Simulated scan of single mutants.
Amino acid sequence: MAIEQGEIEKIAELSRIRISDEEIGQVTQRITEILQMVDQLQAVDTHDVEPMANPLDATQRLRPDEVTQSNRRDAFQAIAPAVENGLYLVPKVIE
Results as ranks from 00 to 15, higher is better:
Q5G: 02
A75Q: 14
I19L: 09
L89A: 04
L35P: 00
R73V: 15
T68L: 10
R73A: 15
A12H: 05
V38P: 04
V83W: 00
T46P: 01
M52K: 10
Q42E: 10
E84F: 04
K92E: 00
R16W: 06
E22N: 15
G25L: 11
E84N: 03
I31K: 02
V67T: 13
G25R: 11
L41A: 05
D65F: 07
A43S: 12
N71V: 12
E50H: 05
L14P: 03
P81A: 04
P81Y: 01
N71W: 14
V38E: 01
Q36A: 15
D48A: 04
I34M: 11
M1E: 10
F76V: 12
N85Y: 03
L56K: 08
T32F: 01
A2F: 01
R30S: 13
D48L: 00
D45F: 05
I11M: 08
V27P: 02
Q29G: 11
S15V: 08
L14D: 13
A80S: 11
A12Q: 01
A2M: 08
E13R: 10
I8V: 13
F76K: 08
A78P: 06
L14M: 11
P55D: 00
T46A: 02
D21N: 13
I94K: 11
I79S: 13
L14W: 02
P91K: 12
I8W: 00
A75T: 12
T59V: 13
T32P: 01
